Simulated assay, not measured.
Amino acid sequence: MRTILIVEDDILEQDFLKDIIKEEVSKSDAIITCNNGPSAIEAAKEHRPDFIFMDIWLPKLDGIKALTAIREFCPNAAVIILSAYSDFSFAQEAIRLQVKDYLLKPIRPIEIRQTFQSVYLNSAASTSHFPQVLAPNIPIPKTSIHMDVIEKSVQYIQQNFKQKLSLKAVSDHVYMNPQYLSRIFKKEMGISCIEYINRLKIEYACKLLVTTDKSICQISSLCGFSEQSYFNRVFIHQMNTTPKLFRQKNGRTGSFEFLPTDL
């Protein structure tokens, strides 16, 4: 029996991960879930998981700090980091904490399956008493036109989300009709193109609010919003609080307390 710990504060994404992992493990394996840093530490102490899916942005204690604490008593757990923001400092910490993979949100089901299968099977191969219950991890060729378009779109968004970025700008980059791109993006990624852009913008805004003294107006501009009022509306929608209150609550401690609403 193996134990998988999923640490994700968004209930929809937590259920999404759990449903996928259920399909990849044996019936004797246990899947444990929690939604914040402190509860992740307590769950890890109690269940000593073999595999951990750890979101970085968590309430009360961020994923990196939670994982640092967990490593003290679960040094051999195979960890997969989940993040909506590609930050080199996080990648450095992930390397230090010996994580197996670092997946950027939104994550396609195939990415989760392939990553988990690889980690799961490697663990099986190194543990003689553990039965290998999965089929071999067969790479899926990326020849689909849709997949190619989505990958190019995501890459473009990640490189340019700090600018004023529209669906049309993304669709022009991949030479596709905006409405058609919107449909296939939602289908393949599980989130709309605009929601994905705004999620990256707001997570970057949260980082700036906590780590800098820049004004909210400046941060709004740095995140690619032309109007602070729109920035405030998007921020409240995602974080369930205002930028000002978020900064007051978190200060410049480096500890991020996120309370995002479902997108």
Rank of each mutant, 00 (worst) to 15 (best):
215 S>A: 01
250 N>R: 10
204 Y>E: 14
163 Q>W: 00
58 L>E: 11
35 N>D: 11
190 G>L: 07
101 D>N: 12
189 M>K: 03
101 D>Q: 01
3 T>V: 05
4 I>R: 02
118 S>H: 15
113 R>C: 07
135 A>H: 06
29 D>N: 12
241 T>H: 04
3 T>N: 06
79 V>F: 11
222 L>Q: 10
165 L>R: 11
226 S>V: 03
196 Y>S: 12
208 L>M: 10
171 S>Y: 12
206 C>G: 02
114 Q>E: 02
243 P>D: 00
135 A>G: 00
157 I>K: 12
33 T>M: 13
131 P>V: 06
131 P>I: 13
259 L>E: 10
179 Q>T: 05
30 A>P: 02
144 S>N: 13
166 S>N: 11
17 L>D: 02
257 E>A: 14
123 S>M: 09
226 S>Q: 06
247 R>T: 07
202 I>F: 06
185 F>H: 10
99 V>C: 13
214 K>P: 05
86 S>I: 03
257 E>W: 09
56 I>Q: 04
115 T>S: 04
63 G>N: 08
220 S>T: 06
196 Y>T: 13
93 E>P: 00
73 F>K: 05
187 K>A: 14
100 K>C: 06
31 I>W: 13
91 A>Q: 15
257 E>Y: 08
104 L>W: 00
186 K>S: 13
130 F>D: 10
49 P>R: 07
159 Q>F: 01
60 K>E: 07
245 L>K: 14
7 V>H: 02
175 Y>V: 05
116 F>W: 02
187 K>E: 14
118 S>Y: 10
127 T>N: 11
101 D>W: 00
14 Q>L: 05
253 T>M: 02
118 S>A: 15
19 D>G: 07
145 I>T: 08
252 R>E: 00
189 M>P: 02
13 E>Q: 14
125 A>P: 00
78 A>Q: 12
170 V>L: 09
56 I>M: 07
76 N>K: 11
39 S>P: 03
71 R>E: 15
238 Q>R: 08
103 L>C: 01
37 G>V: 04
135 A>S: 05
2 R>D: 15
207 K>L: 11
207 K>R: 15
16 F>L: 07
3 T>F: 09
252 R>P: 01
254 G>S: 04
5 L>N: 04
225 F>C: 06
76 N>R: 11
175 Y>S: 15
245 L>N: 09
240 N>L: 14
117 Q>T: 09
51 F>C: 00
129 H>D: 15
232 N>A: 13
263 L>M: 09
38 P>R: 15
